[in-house]
Simulated assay, not measured.
Amino acid sequence: MADIESATAQKLLKAFMQFRKTGWHDKKISGHNPSEFKVLATIQQGANEKDYEMKLSEISQRLQVTPPTVTQIINNLEKDGLVERTVDPEDRRAVKIKLTPTGMEATAKARIRFTETFTGLIDYLGEEESEQFADLLTKVQHYFSELNR
């Protein structure tokens, strides 16, 4: 087992720190922060799977975040005219969310931009290294998940 003083451990630590400093995971995607994009994409995906609308609780479950977190994001998206809320006629306690036409357009643009970013990374690394990188990131995620248990 390597210790933190080893050259490899130092190189990994430095790489993680530099990667974090890039802020890639905090950058806006077509004007939307990552949380907003995830909610928009989730609503779009849900609409494509079954219905035009999704319950707020379904969005919360899919994203594995609390309903108040989703509600706050939905409030911002609603102010921007990207989503609409309706009360479920079958369950008046449930709120259904759907994308507005503006929301559909914004989500489509954001998906294109998101895809371009990762396509650019594949072009930069090459197909083989991209596959290796994805496999390594998956292993790293598993390692940290196990470590945190």
Rank of each mutant, 00 (worst) to 15 (best):
I4Q: 12
S6K: 13
S6E: 13
A7C: 08
A7T: 14
T8E: 13
Q10A: 13
K11Y: 11
K11L: 14
K11R: 15
L12H: 09
F16N: 12
M17V: 12
Q18T: 10
K21C: 09
K21G: 05
H25M: 08
H25D: 15
H25K: 07
K27D: 13
I29M: 10
S30C: 10
P34D: 02
E36W: 03
V39D: 00
L40G: 03
A41I: 01
Q45G: 12
K50A: 07
K50T: 11
K50E: 08
K50H: 14
Y52I: 02
M54C: 12
L56P: 00
E58I: 09
Q61L: 09
L63H: 01
Q64P: 00
V65P: 00
P67T: 10
T69V: 12
V70W: 00
Q72M: 09
I73W: 02
N75Q: 08
D80K: 15
E84V: 14
E84A: 09
E84P: 00
T86N: 03
T86K: 15
V87L: 13
R92K: 13
V95F: 06
V95Y: 03
K96D: 05
I97M: 07
K98F: 00
L99K: 13
A110P: 00
A110T: 04
R113V: 08
E116W: 04
T119W: 02
G120I: 07
D123C: 05
D123V: 10
Y124A: 04
L125K: 08
G126L: 02
E128P: 04
E129M: 10
E129F: 03
E131N: 03
Q132N: 07
Q132I: 02
F133G: 01
A134F: 08
D135C: 04
L136T: 06
L137K: 01
T138P: 05
V140Q: 05
V140C: 05
H142E: 10
S145N: 09
N148S: 10
N148D: 08
